[in-house]
């Protein structure tokens, strides 16, 4: 091989870049987020009624769009009543409705958001619930 010094340095850089995710994770704890659903407000509910406004699968992927729709509806149309697909009505409010049950932002919202490195701008305007744990 000609110019092998330069080529080998280049190839080593290439290998270092390609294998970066692998050696970067050596010795690190690889914990998936576990959400806590044991807030006092949820505990108070009877077993059958411990349901979010929509199904778990819908909320998992679509909660951000639901909240966005709620915001538009409340701020632009002044309409605060949400009728779910199960024909139940809810008050469209992040602080007063969502966080009433999920009062544990640190163990609920933040778990997945931190894991996925997502920083929603909800709390730029809204007031996060006070939690005892820091």
């Amino acid at each position: 091989m000609y110019d092998s010094g330069k080529i080998i340095v280049g190839l080593l850089i290439f290998i270092a870049l390609v294998t970066f995710p692998f050696y970067n994770n050596i010795g690190k704890v690889n914990a998936k987020p576990e959400l806590k659903l044991d807030t006092p407000e949820i505990q108070k509910l009877p077993e059958q009624e411990r349901k979010c406004v929509e199904s778990k699968e819908f909320m998992r992927g679509g909660h951000m769009q639901l909240l966005d729709d709620w915001r538009d509806s409340v701020v632009r149309d002044g309409s605060r009543i949400y009728t779910s697909s199960a024909h139940k009505t809810f008050n469209m409010s992040l602080q007063n409705e969502c966080m009433r049950c999920h009062s544990n932002k640190k163990d609920f919202c933040d778990k997945c958001h931190n894991y996925m490195a997502v920083k929603p701008y909800c709390w730029d305007c809204h007031i996060a619930p006070k939690e005892n744990k820091s």
Binding site: K28, N30, K32, R60, G61, C112, Y115
Partner: peptide
Amino acid sequence: VHIVGVKVLAMGLVS
């Protein structure tokens, strides 16, 4: 898609 599941899969692959 189940995005947290995607990361769990990806982290499993790299570790």
